[in-house]
Amino acid sequence: MIEVVELRKRYAPKAPEAVAGISFEARRGEVFGLLGPNGAGKTTTIGALTTRVRPTSGYVAIDGIDVQADPVAVKQRIAVVPQRPNLDRQLKAIENLTFHAAYFGYGRAERRKRALEVMKALGLEGREDEDVNNLSGGMAQRLLIARALMHRPQVLFLDEPTTGLDPQSRLFLWDRIEELREAGTTILLTTHDMVEADRLCDTIAIVDHGTIVALDTPSGLRRLLPGAGGVEVVATGMADAEGALGSFGEVEVAGTADGRRQIRIYGDGVDPAAVVDAVRDSGGEMLELRRLEGSLEDVFVHLTGRDLR
């Protein structure tokens, strides 16, 4: 349903490539997650798929239609829920939906009926005549999703849909997304929320510096951690972590602050007691010790590093 082949995008001749050769496919009815740090190229990739970014090279298609060659036919099939609200502020809540449907050729009676249904399904019943400027963040987000559903899109793009929402709104949205998947909508989701990605996505691509560094199911990604039985140690006085702990497996210093070092040891069957001894023997003081459970977050940080973007 979604096809991206060797997508590249450079915004200015001398600028670095925002997207440097991304390829993936999403099947009909699949929830596909794009994960990555800020600036990794997620939004550019969505832009190319939704006709808003012209690729420097590569091929992107929706439902077999080349986005570059026939953007209008693509726009008939997709809907986008943006990161930031872009509601029509001169219109009331329900009018945002009815006019959107009008753009897609829905007749007057039909669009009103559908708008009422969609608002009800998204918990916005009774808010029909609300001024959109007065909606809370969560309600505005639900209205954006309601608007996107008005023309029954085959592919729905959700750009960080739950960022800034309270836990209730988040759970509510997750349920709606699962319903949409069951009804056959293909969904492309970007998020920083690993729990969200883990719960919703059938396939996840982790993107960094404009390329895909991993592409798998959530459980497949968790297996990417070298030695799932590793441990994480926070200790002081560990100047040479590599030398002291190298014998247990692959050592990664994940952070240093205030003389404390956060050290990850990836290896099969690392014995925590032996690690405690080794830290003490090298003159360090152990502050924390935990097993790496192999959460998606661990995978994400392992693959993309800890540097701020």
């Binding site: 939704t50 006709t51 808003r52 209008v72 036919a73 726009k75 008939q76 997709i78 809907a79 986008v80 943006p82 930031r84 609200p85 872009n86 509601l87 029509d88 502020r89 959107h100 753009y103 897609f104 050729g105 608007r147």
Partner: peptide
């Protein structure tokens, strides 16, 4: 950013 909804209309 209201223009975005127009730019995504099939036109």
């Amino acid at each position: 950013k209201e223009i975005e909804d127009r730019l995504l209309a099939p036109i």
